[in-house]
Write a protein that binds this DNA or RNA. Sequence first.
DNA 1: GAGTGGTCTAGACCACGAG
DNA 2: TCGTGGTCTAGACCACTCA
Lengths: 269, 269
Amino acid sequence: MATYFQDVAEQMRNQIRQGSYPNGKRLPSEDKLADQYGVSRPTLRLALEQLQNEGLVDKRHGSGNFVRWPADRLTYLGTARSTGWHGLNTEVSTTETTADTSVAALLGVEEGEKVTAFTYLARRGTRPRSVTRSYVPARLARLISPDRPQLPWGHDIRQQLTAAGVRLASSTERLVARLPMPCEARTLQISQRTTVLVIGRTLSDVSGRVVEAAVVVLPGQCTEAVFTTHIGLRSDEDESSAPPAERQEAIQLVHSPTPAESDKEVSGD
Amino acid sequence: MATYFQDVAEQMRNQIRQGSYPNGKRLPSEDKLADQYGVSRPTLRLALEQLQNEGLVDKRHGSGNFVRWPADRLTYLGTARSTGWHGLNTEVSTTETTADTSVAALLGVEEGEKVTAFTYLARRGTRPRSVTRSYVPARLARLISPDRPQLPWGHDIRQQLTAAGVRLASSTERLVARLPMPCEARTLQISQRTTVLVIGRTLSDVSGRVVEAAVVVLPGQCTEAVFTTHIGLRSDEDESSAPPAERQEAIQLVHSPTPAESDKEVSGD
DNA sequence: GAGTGGTCTAGACCACGAG
DNA sequence: TCGTGGTCTAGACCACTCA
């Protein structure tokens, strides 16, 4: 009933979970595995693709396929409980730029207006685990100096805004599961065929203006996002105030890293 | 520079977005498209798979590939603003069963204890758009009667609990992007190779007990999830109270629709 | 340079849907 | 029944990694 590649995936999954292969160990080459399971290499590769999407296998071009078990997942914590996260080291870079169409729409400013972009790259060890691009209108950018960020998804910007006296009112986070754009795949060092979890976030102050907009891209295979809602006060009433934006086609990391390196790519390791 | 299948996908994407194909129209057969773009059918199918994951193409076995543009997305609204949703018709079925391991863990009850499961199937037209399985401990089940649900993801259960006097305190929603289990793919009528967005939700009362646990499975290609957080009160302080559960391997719809067929499915580990 | 995964081909056969 | 998409094969060549 099941297909070949599902069968093979099932068998390999069990092998890995039972610990037949230790974590970090290289699997036999795809040719050998194909022989071993009696299928062709394309079919075997479908099975590996499944396991990769489950976070059980880590493919490395030129090196091999590696076992990832237990498949540790990162947790993205929603705005309500944005605590720090251990085991990730995060780099930030700052760029002054102008809002393109999608950023302008998110931030609620005119297209071409000046904004400051903060790019967070979080790694576990040497492997990238998330990219965040956070945009702040120029008028607020001077309040922020993310030197040594403790928080991998730009939540320290919120803290700094608060500390600087900006009165924040609400945060909206919009999640989509999709395949990565080519540049995202490259930056995160994942295949273009594995899913990413994309979070578009806007932060508003008490006057309703958006003071920060961000896009977080996380490899679907090894992350989850958690949101906690306190139900104490009846917050169901005011839902007519801000209809959730009917058209927003693609939440995407608008790849324009620093104008200088925009032809070469970010990366580095 | 780019690969063939990305190139083809790009071209077809532009064609579709420019409206060269009207919404709902059948594309030429894969053989013809492969000829047309000068690639083999497997390569063309990779391109189609991309577009399918973007929600631009609807594949129907035996019938053809159909244009879906504009690619309307459903919006899952997090607990804070769980309003109704128009254009979906939802069916519910109720099952009394006993908690298996994963349900027991979610609900915080003993394995084997009696629980009531509500299964929501939401459709747009005839096509399924989400499956929700909501579990309530037997002691609370009598409070609930989801006759004619207005809400496709079981949020009416929360309303009924509130109406019955249960004092709710918080809701935690945990999102993962992954490939569907075979049974999920069948229920949602999607390919096993397109991603789903899975939301695990637990609802706790003021005493900290979990009163409802649910799993929502949404086709990634055509849904997004939105969470809004009000920042008025400082909710950052109490985050030590409930650490977000270190191990929860697979949030999955534990397919046991009718107890009868539960012996030959499921899997797990 | 040897070995690995990434991409691609040109076939084949099966399962499904509609007339 | 016929055309469609779903799966699978056995090769081929390229790009990457590492010794």
